[in-house]
Every structure is written in C-alpha cells, then in structure tokens.
C-alpha cells in the first residue's frame, strides 16, 4: 500500500487534506490511492444537507457537530460553496459558523468550491467522502447550496438527504418540487422563530402527500420538522429522525451498504465512465489539435458533425467504423 493511503487510514490530517486537494484539482494519480482506500470505506454514515443560500445550513451543521460529538462519534464535514462564474474563484465561508469545532480532533472540516468542470463536483465530492470514510469518521456531513443539478446530485449520494427551507419561501418551495422534493428524506423548516412556519409546513406536507403512493407499504415517509438552528431548538429531534431513517435503511436495504445498492452503483459507475472517457478522449483530442481541426472542417462546410464525431471517437476507442470514414482526408 502507498504511504499516502496508509497515512489516510491512520487518520493523518495532513495526508487527508492534501489528498482531497489532489482530488479536487483532478490529479490523475489519486486514482491509485482511491483504489487502495476503497476497501476501508463503507462504514461512515453520510448525511447530505441542501437548501437555498442563507437558510441556515452551516449553523445547523455546527449544532449537529455539537450533539454528535457529545456521543463521542467523529465527524467529517464537506462544505460546498459555489464558484464564481466570472473569475473561477470562490469565497468559502461555511467554516465561520463552525469555528468552535476547529480545535476538536474528532472533527474534520473541509470547504470545497463547485468549480464547474464537467461532472466534477459529484465525482470529487464522492471521492472526498470516501477519503473521510477511510480515515474513520463515523459521520460525514455534506453541505451544498441546493441550486444546481450538480449540488443536488451530491447530496443524493448520501444515506440521509435533508432539505432545508425557511418560512415564507412559497415560490422557492415550488422550485424544490421541480427538482429535489423526491430526494428529501427529511425536511426542515429552519428559522421557525419567524412568521409563517405553519403555512410552510402545510404547503410542504401537501406536496409530499401528493406523492403518497411512494410512501405506501411501509416506505419511508419524509418527516417535516421545525427547527431554529441558531438557538439549537429542534436539532436533537432532527438527529433522532436521522437515526430513525438510518434504522429504516438498515431494515430495508442491506443496512449501510445502501450506498452500494445496485442501481446506485450503476448510476455512479455510469457517471464515472462518462467522465473518464471525456477526460481521456476529449482532452487528448484537444491537446493534439484534432478537435479544433474537426471544428474547422465543419465550419468550412467540408464535413458534417456526425462524421466528424465518428472520426474523432472511433479511432480513440480503437474501434474501426463500419463504413468508409468520410472526410478523413481533411483530418
């Protein structure tokens, strides 16, 4: 085993931090290390928390950390914030709310930016989860801003997916319905100290109940809880719901191997293969200039895009095309 993998498994903070950096930066050499770590994963319980900007996700995570640590369980946190589309930079500010845990050896907090490279976020977050899992964290909490599909996909790979809303988010709740309502295992109405939480509760209830069929026959029915993260009100009850959901998963789906359920593995592997193909094939074609030459040919009307695609992809995969390869002379 490589020394990096050994250090990660031994819980070496520095090694873990640097490996996550390499994952985030898309360094190809991390693959070998992740292979070595994989047998040591599958033990952590992964909680995904998503919701609109400013609904109180980080404040909630901070309180969760406090309670979970009282039980002497260890926690890894991945806090994902959006990359600025203008500069490619990001301000990662979730840590501010979790400051009081920074000297606690049982807590590892890492901020990540969405970056926006193709398929990158889901892939790199999953790998980072594996690293924290391999280092022995009992719980892993992933916080994302629930805006893009990527961010939603990230929390979907958790055992328990939590969706946070605040009172008076009428239209936003409609927006949730379109995308992530189905993925929520627990709904939280945070800032319940504010006006309108009853209305939000009944709106949400209505929407979840519209999907009633899904919850028949003993299936998990997502609870909706009112919390006040900043005052630590309702957070204990929330953690109890997570525990109930965990029990439910254990009873119904081969326990914590839930993340390795067949359809999940299928989805994740499909995605991984896609990303890898793009990385290997497209990147190479871009580097050699073949891609740009094909674009030129299409622009100049010398070649149709279908043939261009054949010309680019088939040789790269070592497949010979059935018919004559059209327009190959221009490439």
């Amino acid at each position: 085993m490589s020394s990096v993998a050994e250090k990660v498994i031994a819980g070496d903070i520095r090694a873990v931090a640097r490996l996550i950096r390499d994952i985030d930066d898309g360094m190809p050499e991390v693959r070998e290390i992740l292979k070595e770590l994989y047998p040591s994963t599958g033990k952590a319980y992964v909680i995904g928390i998503t919701g609109a900007p400013g609904v109180g996700k980080s404040t909630l995570v901070d309180q969760m950390l406090n309670h979970i640590r009282k039980d002497d369980k260890t926690v890894g946190v991945l806090a994902v914030d959006p990359t600025s589309p203008f500069s490619g930079g990001a301000i990662l500010g979730d840590r501010v709310r979790m400051q009081r845990h920074s000297m606690d050896e049982g807590v590892f907090i890492r901020s990540m930016a969405t970056r926006g490279h193709f398929g990158g976020l889901t892939q790199s977050t999953r790998s980072a989860i594996d690293v924290l899992d391999a280092m022995g964290k009992d719980y892993i909490i992933v916080e994302t801003v629930g805006v893009g599909q990527d961010e939603v996909d990230v929390v979907k790979s958790a055992h328990t997916t939590v969706i946070v809303v605040i009172p008076g988010m009428g239209d936003d709740i409609q927006a949730i319905k379109a995308g992530i309502l189905e993925t929520g295992d627990i709904f939280l109405i945070n800032k319940a100290d504010r006006e309108g939480s009853d209305k939000t509760m009944s709106d949400l209830r209505l929407m979840i109940d519209m999907d009633k069929k899904k919850y028949e026959g003993g299936k998990w029915k997502p609870p909706i809880l009112k919390v006040q993260a900043v005052f630590d009100a309702g957070v204990m009850e929330f953690l109890e719901e997570i525990e109930k959901h965990r029990q439910y998963l254990i009873e119904t789906s081969d326990g914590l191997q839930f993340r390795r359920k067949r359809n999940r593995v299928q989805d994740e592997l499909t995605e991984m293969v896609k990303n890898r193909l793009i990385e290997e094939v497209l990147e190479n074609l871009t580097e050699t200039g073949e891609f740009d030459r094909a674009v030129d040919s299409i622009v100049e009307g010398k070649l149709d895009p279908y043939s261009a695609c054949d010309n680019l992809v088939l040789p790269a995969l070592g497949v010979s095309s059935g018919g004559p390869v059209k327009g190959s002379e221009v490439l």
């Binding site: 990359t83 600025s84 930079g89 990001a90 840590r95 400051q99």
Partner: peptide, 14 residues
C-alpha cells in the same frame, strides 16, 4: 472578495 475576483479559492474563517 478581491482574491475571489482574481480566481483564488478563499476560505474565510471568521
């Protein structure tokens, strides 16, 4: 903010 606008990832710790 200036760092972000320059393309850096900035962890703000409070």
């Amino acid at each position: 903010r200036a760092y972000r606008d320059a393309g850096f990832e900035v962890v703000y710790s409070g």
